[in-house]
Amino acid sequence: MALLRDWTLALGKQVGRPAAKLQKDSGDPEVARVRAAAAAADWNTVRAVLQARPESEDRTELLWAVGETARVERWITEAVEAEPGAALPRLVAGIRYISWGWEARTSARATQVSREQFEVFHDRLRTAEQFLYEAAEREPGWSSPWYGLQTTGRGLQVGQALARRRFEATVRRDPHHLGAHIQQLQQVCDKWGGSHEEMHAFARASVLGAPGGTLLGRLVPDAHIEQWLSLPRGEDAAYMRRPEVAQSLREAAEHSYRHPDFVRRGSWNGLLNSFALAFSLVGDRDAARECFRATEGRVTESPWDYVDRDPVAAYRKHRAAAGR
């Protein structure tokens, strides 16, 4: 806690405040490198970057950088065919087909998605599952294929029991895998067949069950934001002002970014952005201001895109309200 407060005090001494800018990734230079290689259909470089990042160090961000790059599906199958015994090209193909599937579905509500879109969506997810299972067979110790299968499972609506088994398969290999926990949080929320109670219980248990300084701390604000979004106007604000909501946020903050072992690595900035919005909605201006200072103006799309189509505008509005 002292470590972060010293850091934020130092930031507070700066003249003015940092300009708010959208940050698409963690700032890891390898993300830009692997994305450029994927866009150029340079499998040798993509493979080298991914192989240099061990599974134990969570290469999820690198995989998504490749998977979200347009037209990867046009060349990745050639790499799969050229390396029949290799897991990595199959893993990349699976992640690309997940992203490509969601592109077809779009982020619209289910009632606004056509039957044709759903057919393409499900077809691509089923292809992704085939690649991911093949990757898992070739590398039984890898967590990434199972994390990918969590995502396909939610899109294909495999049900809570199978979704839970896929989550457990991921965390057996990597107990504190952030992406896996974020996927499971969505899986157990009300809109995907779970409940608010189950969602909050999962978030709290995951955070407090992890070592101090954990990035899993963001599960708690994410869960509260999820419930806030589900409520009608008036009830949403009343929910966030409940004393138990503020208390659960403070508890998670102490075990994550306020903990002495917290390190700015990986998705640390996404965690602080989530807490900044949650504390803003709660009305705790001091805690929100602390988070805004620590982000140094780096805006992540989530959770601000839930508030406004322009995440930077939403961030600026709430930062100003917090007095930062």
Rank of each mutant, 00 (worst) to 15 (best):
residue 281 L to Y: 11
residue 295 T to R: 12
residue 168 E to T: 09
residue 233 R to C: 07
residue 281 L to C: 04
residue 230 S to M: 11
residue 274 S to A: 12
residue 201 A to V: 03
residue 279 F to M: 12
residue 214 T to N: 00
residue 237 A to F: 06
residue 230 S to V: 01
residue 178 L to Y: 11
residue 189 C to F: 06
residue 204 R to A: 15
residue 243 P to N: 03
residue 251 E to G: 07
residue 218 R to P: 00
residue 295 T to C: 13
residue 166 R to K: 14
residue 229 L to C: 10
residue 282 V to S: 07
residue 194 G to R: 04
residue 189 C to P: 00
residue 250 R to I: 00
residue 275 F to C: 08
residue 252 A to P: 01
residue 299 V to T: 05
residue 211 P to Q: 02
residue 267 S to M: 10
residue 285 R to T: 09
residue 270 G to A: 09
residue 267 S to K: 09
residue 200 H to M: 13
residue 234 G to M: 08
residue 172 R to F: 09
residue 198 E to I: 11
residue 172 R to K: 15
residue 181 H to F: 08
residue 203 A to M: 03
residue 232 P to Y: 00
residue 179 G to N: 06
residue 258 R to L: 14
residue 182 I to M: 15
residue 213 G to M: 00
residue 165 R to A: 14
residue 251 E to K: 04
residue 176 H to G: 10
residue 273 N to V: 09
residue 179 G to R: 08
residue 256 S to L: 03
residue 171 V to P: 05
residue 188 V to R: 12
residue 274 S to G: 14
residue 170 T to N: 02
residue 230 S to K: 11
residue 267 S to P: 08
residue 265 R to A: 08
residue 191 K to R: 15
residue 210 A to D: 02
residue 169 A to K: 05
residue 295 T to Y: 08
residue 271 L to G: 07
residue 287 A to I: 02
residue 251 E to V: 10
residue 292 F to V: 08
residue 191 K to I: 10
residue 179 G to D: 05
residue 247 Q to W: 04
residue 194 G to Y: 02
residue 270 G to S: 11
residue 204 R to E: 11
residue 285 R to W: 09
residue 250 R to K: 10
residue 266 G to M: 02
residue 167 F to M: 03
residue 224 H to T: 02
residue 271 L to K: 05
residue 229 L to W: 13
residue 170 T to R: 03
residue 267 S to N: 05
residue 281 L to N: 13
residue 276 A to S: 15
residue 217 G to N: 02
residue 221 P to Q: 00
residue 247 Q to V: 06
residue 207 V to Q: 03
residue 271 L to N: 12
residue 254 E to S: 10
residue 282 V to F: 05
residue 219 L to F: 02
residue 184 Q to D: 10
residue 171 V to K: 02
residue 203 A to C: 09
residue 272 L to K: 05
residue 226 E to L: 08
residue 191 K to N: 12
residue 243 P to E: 09
residue 190 D to K: 15
residue 182 I to C: 14
residue 277 L to N: 12
residue 230 S to Y: 01
residue 284 D to P: 07
residue 182 I to H: 15
residue 185 L to H: 12
residue 214 T to S: 01
residue 206 S to K: 04
residue 274 S to N: 07
residue 181 H to V: 06
residue 219 L to E: 07
residue 260 P to H: 00
residue 220 V to G: 11
residue 257 Y to L: 02
residue 285 R to L: 09
residue 287 A to E: 15
residue 170 T to F: 02
residue 224 H to I: 06
residue 292 F to A: 11
residue 217 G to C: 00
